[in-house]
Simulated scan of single mutants.
Amino acid sequence: MEDKKPLKRATELQPLSHDHHYALQLCWKIRTGFSKNIAVERIKLYTDWFFENSLAEHFKLEEQDVFTVLEPGNELVKRALLDHESLTTLFHAQLDVKENLEKIESLLKAHIRFEERELFAEVQKIATPQQLEKIEAAHAQDDFKEYDKDEFWL
């Protein structure tokens, strides 16, 4: 039986994993907002802010610097790009807000698990030191600043 230990994340990819942590917190905040019967408009204001101030840039960085490590047409990249497109559409949707927030919470959580467990593991396996350095340089600091206008999840 093969021993499957978790792959230690390359230092250069760790800032992206930190971004994923913040996105998982977003999922928790959506669930918490619903459990506290917070008005969906308040939750939507926060998710809009989060997308514009964190997630959109994260997607761009992955698409330009991480996914390009793998060969064109790679199935993992295709799935990730489809997820990015679906999530972007959901974040921008203005109708059926509660339903779309529920979909964001579910899809984003699954997407992050996929990237961390499969896509990043594959990238880390084949990336050259130069490619890893480029990824690290593109995401040099963890500059996430929390939204403090309405902390509905507290």
Results as ranks from 00 to 15, higher is better:
18 H>S: 12
86 S>K: 11
54 S>Y: 08
48 D>E: 12
58 H>N: 06
51 F>H: 07
83 D>G: 01
62 E>C: 07
75 E>H: 06
59 F>Y: 14
34 F>D: 02
20 H>Q: 05
9 R>C: 06
61 L>A: 13
82 L>E: 11
69 V>G: 04
30 I>E: 02
47 T>I: 04
40 V>E: 14
60 K>L: 13
40 V>A: 09
46 Y>R: 01
41 E>A: 11
39 A>L: 13
31 R>F: 05
71 E>Y: 04
31 R>L: 09
62 E>A: 08
35 S>Q: 12
52 E>T: 07
35 S>A: 14
59 F>E: 07
78 K>H: 09
63 E>L: 04
79 R>K: 15
10 A>Q: 13
70 L>P: 01
69 V>F: 07
23 A>R: 00
45 L>W: 04
11 T>E: 15
48 D>G: 05
86 S>Q: 12
68 T>G: 05
48 D>R: 12
24 L>E: 13
52 E>V: 03
53 N>D: 04
63 E>A: 13
55 L>Y: 04
36 K>P: 08
16 L>M: 15
13 L>E: 06
74 N>A: 08
46 Y>F: 15
46 Y>N: 01
12 E>T: 08
77 V>W: 02
23 A>M: 14
84 H>F: 10
66 V>L: 08
37 N>L: 10
22 Y>M: 10
54 S>M: 11
65 D>S: 11
17 S>L: 08
27 C>I: 02
53 N>A: 04
24 L>V: 05
25 Q>P: 00
61 L>D: 14
52 E>Y: 09
45 L>F: 07
34 F>L: 13
61 L>H: 09
80 A>G: 05
37 N>E: 14
36 K>C: 02
71 E>C: 06
61 L>E: 12
34 F>R: 03
50 F>I: 00
71 E>D: 11
47 T>S: 15
51 F>G: 00
71 E>A: 14
27 C>H: 02
74 N>V: 04
62 E>S: 07
45 L>G: 06
15 P>W: 12
30 I>F: 01
38 I>P: 01
70 L>D: 07
53 N>F: 03
60 K>V: 06
62 E>I: 10
61 L>V: 06
27 C>N: 04
68 T>P: 04
60 K>P: 00
23 A>H: 03
27 C>W: 02
39 A>E: 14
78 K>Q: 12
31 R>H: 14
45 L>V: 06
51 F>I: 03
21 H>P: 03
61 L>M: 09
35 S>N: 10
82 L>G: 04
65 D>T: 11
82 L>Q: 10
80 A>L: 05
86 S>C: 05
35 S>W: 00
56 A>Q: 13
46 Y>T: 00
48 D>F: 05
37 N>F: 09
17 S>N: 08
53 N>R: 04
59 F>K: 09
29 K>V: 00
26 L>F: 03
21 H>L: 09
84 H>Y: 09
28 W>I: 03
19 D>C: 15
86 S>L: 09
80 A>C: 08
14 Q>Y: 12
20 H>E: 01
18 H>G: 10
49 W>I: 02
53 N>P: 04
29 K>R: 15
23 A>E: 11
77 V>Y: 03
84 H>V: 07
32 T>D: 07
79 R>D: 07
22 Y>Q: 11
49 W>S: 01
25 Q>D: 15
37 N>M: 08
